[in-house]
Design a binder for these strands. Structure first.
Length: 370
DNA sequence: ATGTGC
């Protein structure tokens, strides 16, 4: 069976991609008004829509091609703390109270982002669940030293990666604007499209603010200063080449530096997109390693083989704070693809240049017990 | 994914 001509798969070996995820791409490519679809090397099955994909239309938008976690993305900060002074046990003892509501001024925070006061909810400044996390890292290897130095980055500092999104807000926006059937979508210029895009843009801004507050809470907890390196959203729809580009678990290649996290037990990569060849991939990049096993498979297979304590340390020696007994299995490194292959596929396609490799020190998921 | 559905 041949692939729809609308679809491009970014992979050195497309036969390795999950056929079920490619079927989901095919289904989306059949929507009237979709002209191009890209599957990235971290492509995997999602709830109706493949994750690790980009979709372009000249005139229509589909709320469910973005999904419920509008604005979800990765923020990266360079901390003032030198790696040589980073003590795992000491840091772990400071990371308490971070699942609870933020004690700061949420009204002032949303106002500062041009958002209405009704969006100053209790979830603002919290990570959430699923694959969201905060991770302390150190530079394992500077691959492009010239570029690393030119960016003013420092290899001897602790770095902090935040993966979170718009929590309940994006979900509410999807709920309010989803079309029936989902594949119908709406004209971007029409009243329904404009109403969706307005609320979508608010959820996007809220997610950026959320990551910023999370970063502030965590760096305050460990007593460090933080310098922003990047903030990249991988679930959104934005104007592109006179039309509309939907990214569902896809990082932008036209907004500067990108961080691509591996699983919690693997390296992350700081990369620079290469503009010349970006169009083949709809100006998009992999957003992470991508799931290899479903959540239920991961739990079934790994809970039979490992104790919780086995999963609180990773093969790279990093620690994991996840007191949710189901989530720690669902998010185990074994459930994810090999990030090295994902990044190699992006390099092979001429989409990125690796600047640095980051090693996990401590991954924070949740203190909430289950 | 979800200030979570029965």
């Amino acid at each position: 069976m041949s692939l729809s001509p609308k679809i491009t798969l970014i992979s050195a070996d497309p036969s390795r991609l999950d056929p079920a995820a490619v079927d989901q791409l095919e289904a989306s490519a059949r929507y009237e008004g979709i002209e191009r679809v890209v599957g990235l090397p971290d492509l995997h099955v999602g709830a109706g829509i493949a994750v690790g994909a980009a979709f372009w239309s000249p005139d229509r938008v589909w709320p469910h091609l973005v999904g419920g976690d509008i604005g979800c993305g990765i923020g990266l900060w360079e901390l003032s703390s030198p790696v040589r002074k980073f003590r795992l046990g000491s840091v772990e003892r400071k990371l308490y109270g971070l699942d609870e509501a933020w004690s700061g001024d949420t009204l002032a925070a949303v106002a500062g982002f041009g958002l209405p006061p009704n969006l100053a909810g209790l979830a603002l400044g919290t990570i959430g669940g699923g694959n969201h996390f905060v991770e302390f890292q150190r530079i394992e290897e500077v691959v492009d030293g010239e570029r690393f130095d030119a960016l003013g980055l420092q290899a001897d500092r602790v770095w902090m990666m935040v993966h979170s999104g718009s929590r309940g807000l994006g979900q509410a926006v999807l709920q309010a604007h989803r079309t029936e059937p989902a594949g119908a979508g709406m004209l971007a210029a029409g009243p329904a499209g404009q109403a969706y895009l307005t609320e979508h843009d608010q959820a996007l801004a809220w997610a950026v603010l959320n990551r910023r507050i999370i970063a502030q809470r965590f760096r305050e907890a460990i007593g460090a200063e933080a310098r922003p390196v990047l903030d990249i959203c991988h679930n959104c729809v934005t104007p592109h080449l006179g039309g509309w580009l939907h990214r569902k678990g896809a990082a932008p290649a036209d907004r500067g530096l990108v961080a691509i996290p591996g699983s919690r037990g693997d390296f992350s990569y700081l990369v620079e997109p290469i503009a010349d060849s970006a169009d083949q991939a709809l100006c998009s990049l992999a957003h992470g390693a991508g799931r290899k096993w479903s959540r239920s498979d991961a739990h079934a297979r790994l809970s039979a083989r490992f104790r919780i304590a086995d999963l609180q340390r990773t093969a790279l020696g990093s620690h994991v704070i996840c007191e949710d007994r189901r989530l720690i299995y669902e998010e185990a490194p074994q459930a994810y693809k090999d990030i090295r292959r994902v990044v190699a596929d992006l390099e092979h396609a001429g989409l990125v240049r690796v600047i640095a490799q980051l090693r996990p020190l401590l991954s924070y998921k949740t203190r909430a017990t289950s």
